[in-house]
Design a protein around this nucleic acid. Structure first.
Lengths: 142, 142
DNA sequence: TAACAAGAAGACCTTTTTGTCTTTTAATAA
DNA sequence: TTATTAAAAGACAAAAAGGTCTTCTTGTTA
């Protein structure tokens, strides 16, 4: 569905928010272990998230990542647009550049509702709303 | 949505079927121009389609690609599974390996219906059904 | 202020995807 | 049977995605 960067960003940020809600600010080592992703890569991705202003970081002992509570919730759409652009949200299922309702591809009518549902999902859900769900800690139970 | 190989395969095969329905068997040069994709890459992809038994080819003068009418229609699902595997059709929206209804990820409930709709679409539609649609020739009107 | 902890930055590497190029094989027609 | 047409095959190359490693900076604590 999404690429790895988006997946890791999504899982990391939900994990950070989940811990923030418990008055904690997790570090890279903890985050990467919990979300089962490569530590150095997660570090790089979180750097980008900080530069984008999506989350804050504190250096030094006792440091870690945390959300600024005064900032509004981060929708999945904003995150996805930043990490992989809008092709999933706007692209034609057939891969045609010039596909639209006036000039539809053969899949246009059937794929439209699916794309709409995806857009609805990522517009409504936020990192914060996911962090409040039951399985937000997504501990793997084998 | 899909990767390039799947897109080009999809567009090529629909174009071939569309021309077959008009008693023609198009060649690589024609196909790649019509679907607006790199000729050598389309050639390679169609070779794979032939080896998979999805379509037939005839070499030499007057040659080209054609479907065997005695063979049943090719679903988009079969094509997608062959070109890029089942991650789009089965994967978790959150990218979790162990996501299922017993151990759902935070997106599980909302993403489920979307995945179901995608599966329904690619199971029901075939190269042939797309070739019969209005815009099957997908001429680009700018 | 020295030692340590933790994120920042960026160079570098690997793998996968996407694509090109050259040579070979097969079929047809003059 | 030779020239021509068109697909087959596979080596090669470029670009993007995914990932690692080292060094630097910043902050905390003894």
């Amino acid at each position: 569905m999404f690429n790895k960067e988006t997946e890791y960003a999504l899982r990391s940020l939900v994990y950070i928010q989940y811990q923030n809600d418990r008055q904690l600010k997790p570090g890279i080592e903890e985050i990467s272990k919990e979300i089962e992703a490569p530590q150095a890569y997660v570090a790089k991705i979180l750097q980008r998230m900080v530069r984008l202003g999506f989350v804050n970081s504190i250096k030094g002992k006792g440091g870690g990542f945390l959300f600024d509570e005064s900032v509004s919730e981060l929708t999945l759409k904003e995150l996805i647009l930043a990490t992989e652009g809008g092709t999933i949200l706007n692209g034609c299922g057939f891969g045609m550049k010039h596909c639209n309702s006036d000039n539809p591809c053969p899949l246009h009518d059937q794929y439209g509702p699916i794309r709409d549902a995806i857009n609805k999902l990522v517009s409504e859900e936020t990192i914060q709303s996911l962090a409040r769900k039951e399985n937000a800690a997504f501990k793997v139970v084998l």
